[in-house]
């Protein structure tokens, strides 16, 4: 009998939501567990790092990596799994684009430390100390990993074969991705294993979208009782549907809240933020210069919408990590 293909599932700088989404495969997960050999999945089972290290290069058929890369430990694990795997799948918005935690690239590490360990109202810190990479405590040496100044996407650290966007990706797409990989039925390397359309194209509200959309001013979601059938943008509510890939099942739209872009750009587009920015400005119908300024000023925190999941992969935010921590 041929050996079962090996699969590794691992979260780097992640929230474990992607692991939960895999567990949400439910019975399908049990079938997968029968058909493959899960060599690594810390959330669900015991494992030894040394076991992975001892493997041949390329011995793992598929590594599913979620999370962004924030410290040397993450990088080391990503590099190890890359080496041992035939196919690496970047799973979830964090691995693909940086994710919500990537917003941390907008503020410095020092600022975070100062707030968390000194200035937060509940902090009691008479000496004003910070946690240290190395501490001597009554003769015991305790160490902590230092983290990078920057949040990286997975493909800024290792070579990624396929992408599975979403926060988290829905179980159906996860199941399809695993089946397609094991069957070798895959699109060209670098593809996202998700539908190719934009969210607007699959949005149930598209039917009632006006032929010519005109926005005069913007409104925030808590200020209005949104019509559950009306296009959010037509109502002046920011929705990233036009620049976001479909595949989520329009779950947010269906509970009457607008899209925030967790599926990332549509195929052929490097980054969704500039596309959406262009869309948004073209929909604005205002005449004079001062009116333009006023309308744009009414968009509170455009950065927080445009880069909600994508700061680390954005044109201005991206950096390439130093390679080769493994050796």
């Amino acid at each position: 009998m041929a050996e079962k293909p090996k699969i590794a599932i691992y979260g780097l700088g992640a929230c474990a939501g992607c692991d939960q989404a895999i567990i949400d495969l439910n019975e399908v997960m049990l079938q997968v567990a029968d058909a493959v050999d899960i060599v690594l999945w810390p959330l669900a089972m015991d494992f030894k790092y040394s076991r992975i290290q001892a493997m041949q290069d390329g011995e793992i058929a598929l590594s599913i990596l979620s999370g962004s890369v924030r410290n040397a430990d993450h990088q080391k694990m990503a590099e190890l799994l890359r080496k041992k795997s035939k196919i690496v799948l970047a799973m979830g918005a964090c691995a693909c684009f940086g994710g919500v935690s990537g917003l941390a690239n907008f503020c410095g590490k020092e600022d975070i430390f100062n707030w968390v360990y000194r200035n937060a109202p509940t902090v009691i810190n008479p000496t004003g100390c910070f946690p240290q990479p190395e501490t001597d405590l009554n003769g015991y040496k305790l160490t902590l990993p230092e983290f990078f100044e920057h949040v990286f996407t997975l493909d800024q650290v290792i070579d990624v074969d396929y992408y599975l966007p979403g926060c988290p990706p829905p179980p159906e797409l996860i199941g399809n991705a695993i089946v397609a990989t094991l069957a070798g039925d895959l699109p060209p390397k670098g593809s996202a294993l998700a539908p190719r359309k934009a969210l607007c194209d699959t949005c149930p509200r598209n039917l009632r979208k006006p032929n010519r959309m005109e926005i005069r001013s913007f409104r925030r979601i808590h200020e209005v009782e949104a019509d559950p059938d009306e296009c959010f943008l037509a109502a002046g509510i920011i929705c990233l549907g036009p620049a976001t890939r479909s595949g989520c099942g329009e779950t947010c739209i269906r509970i009457n809240v607008p899209c925030r872009g967790c599926f990332g750009p549509v195929p052929g587009v490097m980054e969704s933020a500039p596309k959406f920015l262009s869309t948004l400005s073209s929909l604005l119908v205002v005449e004079r210069d001062d009116e333009i300024k006023e309308a744009i000023d009414s968009i509170d925190d455009p950065v927080g919408y445009l880069y909600r999941f994508s700061q680390p992969s954005s044109i201005l935010g991206q950096k390439i990590a130093k390679k080769g921590l493994e050796n």
Partner: peptide, 13 residues
């Protein structure tokens, strides 16, 4: 013109 105004608001970040 509109695009420039909006980009100006984003660059600061």
């Amino acid at each position: 013109r509109k695009k420039v105004c909006l980009i100006q608001k984003v660059l600061g970040a």
